[in-house]
């Protein structure tokens, strides 16, 4: 594995370049389609390079819509996705952080029971309890609201365990010092624990933002009106009409690019932090 001749090194690079090209083909072609008029790929050779309609298509998808075809502008869907992703990420971090703080630094009755109740959420993905969860959410009047999109999936065992692990590495001397200085638990939380966990919070935020942005089943259940649709689940109706023959694949792909851009941008711009977050949450 170490060393190797020039020929074999070139071969490795060649295989990698081909492999990466194959992996990125779906995204590249979606981008190509999003820059061309809808008629460009109905007949003839499939274009492999971007065309002239970049501005026009993105304008249509974002602002104007295609009223004749029943295509609403997707600007509000992107906004809903953003709100949902931010609230889920921030909310999961906030409630898991204080839960983990309570479990790590206090001894109180029901402590172990609380831990197990949180643990159980790991074993209950939405998919296995679709109907009753929908029923509870509906009976609390949370359908078609940001609260309904976010609160029911905001509990997180993984985040709680991660923070607990981080907290266990904070030396006891710090707690003792804080107590000698007369700091209460909340003071200690804000002045010591939060600053010490900043990197972990940031890494986790990236993972949870992507998790929230990419939700599909839950928004599908909770939104029965178009006003609260998120882009990842809303695009499905566009794609449905396009695959039934309507000539709007270019707008579907424009929307798809818009929908994948925020998570891809975050992953690429904070790659080190992202990889760290990924490895940590799965431990």
């Amino acid at each position: 594995m170490v060393g190797g001749r020039l020929g074999s090194r070139l071969l490795v690079h060649a295989i990698l370049i081909v492999g990466i090209a194959v992996m990125l083909t779906p995204i590249w072609l979606a981008f190509v389609v999003s820059t061309r008029p809808g008629s460009d790929f109905m007949t003839g050779d499939f274009p492999l390079w971007p065309g002239p309609d970049f501005v026009k298509n993105y304008r249509t998808a974002l602002i104007d819509g295609q009223p004749g075809a029943g295509l609403q502008p997707v600007g509000h869907m992107l906004w809903n996705s953003l709100v949902m992703a931010l609230v889920i990420a921030a909310g999961k971090i906030a409630i898991s952080f204080i839960s983990a703080f309570a479990i790590a630094w206090f001894r109180f009755p029901f402590r172990v029971a609380a831990f197990w109740i949180i643990f159980i959420t790991l074993m209950l993905p939405v998919e296995v309890r679709i109907l009753p969860t929908f029923a509870v959410t509906a009976s609390l009047g949370l359908l078609n609201s940001y609260a309904g999109l976010t609160i029911p999936i905001i509990a997180s065992a993984t985040a709680t365990f991660l923070f607990r692990q981080v907290f266990m590495t904070i030396p006891d001397e710090l707690t003792e010092a804080a107590r000698i200085d007369g700091a209460g638990p909340l003071r200690f939380l804000v002045d010591m624990v939060v600053p010490l966990s900043r990197t972990n919070v940031a890494a986790l935020f990236i993972i949870l933002f992507i998790y929230g942005w990419n939700q599909y089943l839950w928004p599908l259940l909770v939104t029965t009106e178009p006003g609260y649709e998120t882009v990842v689940m809303g695009i499905q109706r566009l794609a449905q009409s396009a695959s039934e023959g309507s000539p709007y694949w270019h707008l579907v792909m424009t929307t798809a690019i818009l929908a994948m851009l925020p998570p891809i941008a975050i992953v690429l711009s904070m790659r080190k932090l992202f990889v760290r977050g990924l490895v940590e949450t799965e431990k």
Partner: peptide, 19 residues
């Protein structure tokens, strides 16, 4: 370059491949 697809939602990935 290889971590891009991770950020794409499963449903979106499906729409890309369906296209």
């Amino acid at each position: 370059l290889l971590i891009w697809p991770y950020a794409v939602a499963p449903a979106l990935a499906a729409i890309l491949w369906a296209f």
